[in-house]
Design a protein around this nucleic acid. Sequence first.
DNA 1: TGTGTGGTAGATAACGTTGTCACGTCGCGT
DNA 2: ACGCGACGTGACAACGTTATCTACCACACA
Lengths: 343, 343
Amino acid sequence: MSENSRTRQRAGGRPTMNDVARLAGVGLKTVSRVVNGEPRVSEAMAERVRAAIEELGYSPHEGARLLRRGQTACIGLLLEDVANPFYSALAGAVEQVARANGFLLFTASSEEDAAQERELALAFCARRVDGLVIVPAASADHRYLKPEIEAGVIAVFVDRPAVGMAADAVLADNVGGTRAAVVHLLRHGHRRIGYIGDAAEIFTAAQRLRGYRDELVDSGLPFDESLVAMGHPEPQFVHAALDRMLAGPEPVTALIAGNNRATVAVLRDVSTRHQQLALVGFDDFELADLLKPGVTVVAHDPVALGRTAADLLFRRLQGYRGPVQTIEIPTRLVPRGSGEISR
Amino acid sequence: MSENSRTRQRAGGRPTMNDVARLAGVGLKTVSRVVNGEPRVSEAMAERVRAAIEELGYSPHEGARLLRRGQTACIGLLLEDVANPFYSALAGAVEQVARANGFLLFTASSEEDAAQERELALAFCARRVDGLVIVPAASADHRYLKPEIEAGVIAVFVDRPAVGMAADAVLADNVGGTRAAVVHLLRHGHRRIGYIGDAAEIFTAAQRLRGYRDELVDSGLPFDESLVAMGHPEPQFVHAALDRMLAGPEPVTALIAGNNRATVAVLRDVSTRHQQLALVGFDDFELADLLKPGVTVVAHDPVALGRTAADLLFRRLQGYRGPVQTIEIPTRLVPRGSGEISR
DNA sequence: TGTGTGGTAGATAACGTTGTCACGTCGCGT
DNA sequence: ACGCGACGTGACAACGTTATCTACCACACA
């Protein structure tokens, strides 16, 4: 008992394997064997060790174990903003896969800032995560990751591809998504279709714009710059864009919003106007069906995105050495009313 | 050069401080001093070391450093489900505070399962996180954390208090919130007010129910069990509850929904019925203002909740030794129309 | 010339694990 | 009786850092 408490105090904090060994009167390695369930330990020894563990309340120091072992059983997830429902759904999926593989997950938000992304990614690497799932910040250049990847870190990019470097990526079919949106609106008779998207240096924003333009052109319609507004979907920005598009002799009769933020901003703004306006949003969102009219969207699946990326990461961690790949997750147009308003 | 590459290969993976020391032809500790910016290193030495670091692409192994130092500069965040917008907002706030303090953040979801919560919390502790922010799962008992806390881990509970143990907690004013909701509905002439909340063993659900009951009773109205439904707010559950409450000679004319999920479920269900029903939801949510009518809610502030909890955690990590405390974050009724429907 | 003194540098021992190896003790076949 | 695996056990080094302590040098001072 006094032996016990003396032992416990020694470390100041937690009991170590050494303390257990001393208390049980066995060798250090024997404790290690018992803790790890290795064979060739006599039942008598094992029992003594277990008793000592119990008495001291010992729990193994994972950090030390993993230092020795050379891997950490952690992955890092870097996204733009956990608080964005799209990314939090993605995060939930990654987390689930990580847990299923017995890994813990670091999470951090780059806040769409390339420097912060880099800093956080390198902080993860300094912690020697085994892998990284990254939603790149706009205008980031990922060459900074090369040394880490050469050192063995597995990186998988989601939603946006790596820049300056070949790396696995899991992307949504952005081009196909806006193409489908345009087709849908054309089918309902619209010929003047506006587009409000996020800042053009964001990969997904650029891709979606491309889908919009390509589909228009392929349909024999002009691509009119004045019907496009790219920028952070702040209320003022959206308001000004709508003012512009709805003015003049040929106002737009339909609008595509490039992401969930833009869609919401447009809905807010339009609700203060009198004009009827058909709308298709990119990204599905909760309650889209409860608005009047329901909001037609191009849905893509953040959960599939996250799960697929994490699965690929773990396949690589388990030794899969296939070539760098880009996986595309399909998008799907969900008609709910707002896109079906006819001219 | 061949020395260099041989050295680099040695570890199989990354160069270590030892490799740097060897290449620079200096002692191990000198490298350590340079890396940590300690004084008393001659400029000549420092320069040689920096050159070697550069050449090898060395980056320090944070895990090893922290093993030696005895702390990890990590905290763990445990919540019900990252994908729930309420919790992801909370997570974002915690993450921000962690980053501001130079800490990394582990995130995991308990999925409202006490066993999983325990397992994850202990996994965090095995990684020797310095602190823990926990949204307890329903019917969890937190005595399992006692040894960890005695060993120095700081735990702060958010949204729901610890069970079986005194611990810091940051809670919303749940009782006050539903009281305010009841007052609001009474003021608009309602006398038959239903309540649909989450499972009764969830702390917040119980508290909110209490506020509802207390305010009714204080106002001289009867508390009628048949107007209350507590359970997972699945569509069928909500549907059945509404059927019951809206039937009979004295149907409810107003309803309080106990959380964001319940509110949404109620909205969906009500939209398929003909009856007019006043509604106040607990938890604000995006687009609540865009629905027709706008949804009146009792808003509470997940960001304030998370930030306050994390701040308290870090104050304790910095040595603050005040008594265990419970901080209550106020709630605020936001009238938007759905609660203002008169009888 | 001996002696402090102050500033550098490195050897060595930790931190808490696990892997390698060597040791002793069986039981068994020859 | 002897060698020989198989088994159980523990000493020891290693993982990549940091802290402690000692050694060295140069210089100023008595």
